[in-house]
Design a protein around this nucleic acid. Structure first.
Length: 460
RNA sequence: GGCGCGGUAGCCAAGUGGUAAGGCCGAGCUCUGCAAAAGCUCUAUGCGCCGGUUCAAUUCCGGCCCGCGCCUCCA
């Protein structure tokens, strides 16, 4: 079976290239644009990373674990990281290290596999400079009077193919019209040109590197071109990211890389759609921007967030609500119960194969979840723990982690619970019920079993 | 203004030219002092509206209405 995936460039569903078995060194190269590390990532960022994690798991299942190379970069120098460091009066590396660690912790909580290589922009300055030098030599770039270097968009005939930029000329009514004026445009020959190298400005502080064009720092787009080339080669099999990166980031990458290397940059492009919260784009002003920690503080488990992020097709906007997390917790509980019922089953046929089949068909994750529950409900096929686990692994749903992080139970709550348990053992049910109500009023529910009980906070 | 996406049950969400997966919620039942869990059952003559093509359309075509995203450094 081949993996079929929508290609943002050709706008059709195409098969992904398979590594050639005749060449053992041939691997599938997969580059996923990563986060800028200056603040905690929000759940919209994680939608993209969770989707890419499922894709990576599927690729490894299909091609073999050693046949896929997954690269995801960290942008650790740009306007935002520098501004944050300046505001906090800290060295840039302190800020980026802090938020890199947080990003890794969140990814782990969401059960995302670490990429095989996670390069940073500051770790590849030399490669970026080299690339810019080639672009200068070839006439695709020029140095502005202030020492910045710009890519000359008019030098690349195919510029903007990914986003069809030629079909969207700047119109008077465009949101853009007012923006392309002052600061950025004055040094450029053309407003469409973009920075490859930014000359040092006072606000940059110590964050500058030497280059043939003077001290400065790389532009944003060049890092992905340079790191992708250095780690995966001139042509990669798959390049992914969020839909917002299609333009200008990925169109700029294509321009830089193809002008520099003279070959196709990426064989396949895939962009996931954004997440909305309560039907609107997330924004601080609307108060609907969530981080993982925000949701954990409300009593939800990271795995429930992962599940919720997977409930819509990657190429459709996902409307995230707190309700969807409740639904996710319930669905996960049901999967856990099912897994327990399979615990002793022998490995049989690949009962859950339809789950994988759905994923192979343009990464239809909701379809895969539907197939999963359909198989469970119909009890067709033999119980097959190995197959069930394989399906859950590809989706990255780890059922072994606790449903919700254990909350600290206050001593007075424990005392109430003990009292009720004693009353129940003494068959004083009136007292037991009264105590249950007291606990509920305090925000705790008591779950009895034959021999024991558990306390859980009532979900908000 | 340009480019693009979507409107399927209370909520979320797949899907197909031949008659609507699945999850959540809800209801009933079994079990259980109660509650929860677990199990079983039920829950869209209908897929934004209007036309068209067709033996047959939610699925194709056209128009309209509504919502959303992107449009220079935001996944």
């Amino acid at each position: 079976m081949a993996i079929k995936l929508f290609d943002s460039l050709t706008r059709e569903i195409r098969e992904l290239r398979k590594p050639d078995p005749a060449h053992p060194q041939d691997i599938f190269s997969f580059y996923n644009c990563g986060p800028t590390v200056y603040a905690p990532a929000h759940i919209g960022n994680f939608r993209t990373f969770v989707i890419n994690d499922v894709l990576r798991r599927l690729l490894e299942l299909e091609f073999g674990a050693g046949k896929v190379k997954h690269v995801r970069n960290l942008t650790d120098v740009d306007d935002k990281t520098i501004r944050r460091a300046r505001e906090e009066g800290r060295p840039l590396v302190d800020v980026t290290k802090q938020w890199t660690a947080k990003f890794h912790a969140d990814c782990a909580a969401l059960n995302c596999l670490p990429p095989h290589v996670e390069p940073t922009a500051t770790g590849y300055i030399k490669e970026q400079v080299n690339m810019i030098e080639v672009l200068m030599e070839k006439g695709n770039a020029y140095r502005a009077p202030d020492g910045s270097v710009y890519f000359k968009v008019s030098s690349f005939e195919n510029y903007g193919r990914l986003s069809r930029v030629k079909e969207r000329e700047l119109q008077p009514g465009s949101a853009l019209a007012g923006k392309v004026t002052a600061a950025d445009a004055d040094e450029k020959e053309d407003v469409s040109d973009f920075a490859l190298w930014k000359s040092h400005k006072p606000d940059d502080g110590d964050n500058a590197w030497e280059s043939p064009w003077g001290r400065g720092r790389p532009g944003w787009h060049i890092e992905c071109s340079a790191m992708s080339k250095a780690i995966l080669g001139d042509t990669i099999d798959l390049h992914t990211g969020g839909e917002d990166l299609e333009f200008p980031h990925h169109d700029n990458e294509i321009a830089q890389s193809e002008c520099c290397n003279g070959v196709t940059f990426a064989r396949h492009w895939f962009h996931s759609k954004h997440l909305l919260v309560d039907g609107k784009k997330m924004s601080k002003s609307l108060g609907n921007l969530y981080t993982l920690d925000d949701l954990v503080a409300k009593g939800f488990s990271p795995m429930a967030l992962r599940y919720a992020l997977l409930t819509a097709h990657p190429r459709k906007q996902l409307n995230f609500t707190l309700d969807s997390l409740h639904a996710a917790e319930s669905a996960l509980a049901s999967l856990r119960a099912h897994r327990a019922s399979l615990a002793s089953s022998p490995a049989a046929h690949d009962t859950f194969a339809p789950v994988i089949t759905a994923l192979q068909d343009d990464l239809n994750i909701p379809g895969a979840l539907g197939a999963l529950f359909t198989i469970i409900n119909r009890k067709t096929g033999e119980p097959d723990l190995a197959s069930f686990d394989r399906a859950l692994f590809v989706l990255g749903l780890d059922l072994t982690v606790a449903a919700a992080p254990k909350a600290d139970i206050p001593a007075d709550i424990t005392a109430l619970a003990e009292k009720r348990w004693a009353a129940k053992q003494a068959k004083d049910f009136a007292a037991a019920d009264a105590l249950r109500k007291e606990l509920a009023a305090a925000g705790w529910s008591m779950l009895d079993s034959k021999t024991d009980y558990k306390l859980e906070p009532v979900k908000k």
